[in-house]
Write a protein that binds this DNA or RNA. Structure first.
Lengths: 118, 118
DNA sequence: CCGAATCCTATAAGATACTG
DNA sequence: CAGTATCTTATAGGATTCGG
């Protein structure tokens, strides 16, 4: 992802070829990525249909495409077992384990913002 | 913003009435919020037309609406001087100052992810 | 100078049906 | 069981024009 920020950003982060902050936000952006990651963090390795139940309201279309993108970006890993019926399991990667505490800080900041307003 | 995550999330963050992580990501989401915040962080107090030049490619429509949302969310503050011609200046709030280091961690994580892939 | 209003386009998300 | 294919709808973003 090439940097679409500005000169200011280039001085602060290595935006010459790509923008790491923009890329990171894109990886976890959209409506369902965070809910999926939260579910996987809480329960560990989980199979497709379990995820569909735990992430309330998600459709097959969105779950499948979100999982594919998360895997392509290296946030989750997919394991398929050649059984009948088919079994496919997903879990967080180590890189994603590093991400979760940062998201936790962001959530904590969100709490502070909410308290400030009220 | 009500929580659209899942039961798992409710155990980890106070998602009963609102979801802080979802709210936080929404505040900085979209195409232009981060570039604007980066510009304001680097150069401090900046007026509207300066921002339009520094944030390359942004239109009046998007700059105005982004600034309005950022102000409503308490991330930036707007000061209008009754001069002619009109002068309006924007700068980060203290709450946003707390946010920037977290975004910096996210950017650093993005760098690590990129290095892992290559 | 600093935007708002309107209209148009592009992308994200959802519904439904179907398959290996 | 674990998805894909297709179609439709909703939302984000952009272009243009105008006003205080």
């Amino acid at each position: 992802m090439k940097c679409e920020h500005n000169k200011a950003c280039k001085d602060k982060c290595p935006c010459m070829e790509y923008c790491p902050l923009g890329s990171a936000l894109k990886m976890i952006g959209g409506k369902w990525k965070i809910p999926i990651l939260c579910a996987l963090q809480k329960d560990g390795t989980t199979r497709y249909n379990e995820l569909k139940q735990k992430v309330r309201g998600i459709t097959n279309t969105m779950l499948a495409s979100s999982l594919r993108e998360l895997e392509e970006d290296g946030l989750i890993s997919r394991t398929q077992y050649q059984e009948m019926p088919l079994r496919v399991e997903y879990c967080l990667t180590e890189q994603c384990d590093d991400l979760m505490p940062i998201l936790n800080q962001l959530a904590f900041w969100g709490v502070k913002m909410h308290e400030t307003k009220s």
